[in-house]
Every structure is written in C-alpha cells, then in structure tokens.
Simulated assay, not measured.
Amino acid sequence: MIPRYSRPAMKTIWDEENKFKIWFEIEAHAADGMANQGTIPKEAAKKIWELGKFEISRIAEIEKETKHDVIAFLTNLSEHIGPEARFLHQGMTSSDVLDTALSIQMKQSSELLIEGVEKLLSSIKKRAFEHKYSICIGRSHGIHAEPTTFGLKLAGFFAEFERSLHRLQTAKKEIAVCAVSGAVGTFANISPEVERHVAKQMGLEVEPISTQVIPRDRHTAISFFAVCNLL
C-alpha cells in the first residue's frame, strides 16, 4: 500500500507485522489441531504458542538465501521455538498459510469498511430528515428541472450506500474461508479436522473444495476490490 494514501487502520492490516502475526496464528492453531488428533505431542503445541515469535528483518535476511517466504518465516520461528519446531507445518503446504492469511486480511479490511459505511449511513439518514423540506432545484438531462428537496437527494444517496453495504457484506462472507488441506488439497498428510479447527479459531468458514489454493473466483466473481472502489 502507498503510505500517504492509506488510512492508518487499513495500512496496519496489510503491513508485514500483521501478516506474519496471522501466519503464526495459523501455524499455532494447526499445531493445536494436530495435537488434538494425536499427530504431534500436546506439549509441542504448547511450546509453539509460548516460544513462537518472529523478526521481520530476520525473515527478510533468511529469504535472501532460501528464496522462499514461508520457509524463511518457519526458519525464524524455529530459531526461537527450538526442537519442538519440527512439529510445525506438518502435512501443510505454503498456500495453506498464504491463502488463509489473505482471507483474514481481506476480512479485516471489509470489517473496517463496513464500520465506516454504517457510520456514513447514520449521518446521511440524519441529514436527510433534517432537510426533508429543504427546497432545491431538481435536474434532468443535466439542466434545471422541477423543484425537489435536498432531503430526497440525500435519501437517494442513503439507498445507494445501503446497497453498497450489502454488497460488501456479501463480499466479506465470500472471502472469509480457510484452507488447510495440504499439497494440492488432498488431505493426504493432514486431517480435515485440523482445517476445521483452524477455521473455527480464526473466525472463518472451511473452503469446501480447495486444490493447491483457495479458488480464485472468491476473489474475483463478486469483485471484492471493485466493491471497495464503489465505496
């Protein structure tokens, strides 16, 4: 994001600190899910939460060698967690982390926008009633027409933003999904129960059918970013 054009709250959602924080939570919740299944020791899952931390500069340094962002991140985590780090990421693929994290960031962004639109709707509604009888000129074909009221104009804006709010709420639901299904989405080395656990803990729904990635029509079919632009 371009800092000078970004709202502080939105910038925080998309900065490196928040991204890696989400990555860690996905990995740690997955470890809990695996521990619940008996795949890894429960003590190891506990240690991951207790000792897991990261440094953005160190991740960047490691990535220069590995040429792989998730491996760099996991390597940095391992430096802090110690031997129990060998239980991290078992049966998972990089896209399980990347795509689920992207879903969370888009969900967080949509929640911020929804909050703003709801406040805007409240203000427009208040002003519309205030100007219910405020006469102003209407327009037709780009020129002056019959008189109308400013309140009616504001009511039109209210209805338009209300429709935009519904679109944004639909977009939020569409993109708020989790995939922790392993390489090419076959669950060959990880239980679907782990995916369900991560989804529940992260406030997401499970992607019904994923491959290597969460299906991209979720990002494009309802034009999440186009909806944001409408607002």
Rank of each mutant, 00 (worst) to 15 (best):
Y5F: 14
A171G: 13
S210D: 00
W14V: 10
A44C: 07
K132Y: 10
R7E: 11
A60M: 15
D217Y: 07
T75C: 12
Q108I: 00
R216T: 11
D217V: 14
I56A: 11
A171F: 01
L51I: 06
H166N: 09
V198C: 05
A31Y: 03
V194A: 00
I81A: 05
R86E: 08
D99E: 04
S94G: 14
E84Q: 03
E160Y: 03
A176G: 09
E205D: 14
T12K: 06
V184I: 15
E146M: 08
P192Y: 08
N189W: 15
Y5L: 12
T100E: 12
E63G: 14
E61F: 11
R196K: 14
V198D: 02
H141I: 07
W23I: 06
R7Y: 12
T148S: 13
N189P: 01
S6R: 05
S109T: 13
I124H: 04
V227T: 15
I48E: 00
A60G: 01
R163N: 13
L121V: 07
V194D: 00
E65T: 15
D32P: 05
P208Q: 09
F225N: 06
E27K: 08
E25T: 13
D69S: 11
A35R: 02
V206T: 10
P215G: 04
H29I: 02
R127N: 11
E17K: 15
R216F: 03
F150W: 08
V70H: 06
A9G: 07
P215I: 08
E43G: 07
L74N: 04
I71S: 10
A128V: 11
A35T: 05
A176M: 03
R7N: 02
V194Q: 00
L98G: 05
L152G: 10
I124W: 03
K19E: 09
V198Q: 09
A31N: 05
M10N: 06
R58N: 08
S123Q: 07
H197Q: 07
P208R: 06
I48P: 01
K42F: 08
L51N: 13
S6H: 04
K67I: 14
S181Y: 04
H166G: 00
S123V: 09
G151P: 04
N76G: 08
T100K: 14
S140A: 13
E130T: 04
M34N: 07
E50T: 15
I137C: 02
Q90G: 06
S164I: 12
Q37H: 05
Q212I: 10
V206A: 07
G33P: 04
I40H: 01
L74H: 11
C228E: 05
A45S: 12
R7A: 11
Q212C: 10
L74S: 09
I190T: 00
I2T: 09
K67T: 03
L121S: 00
D96M: 12
I40G: 03
P8Q: 01
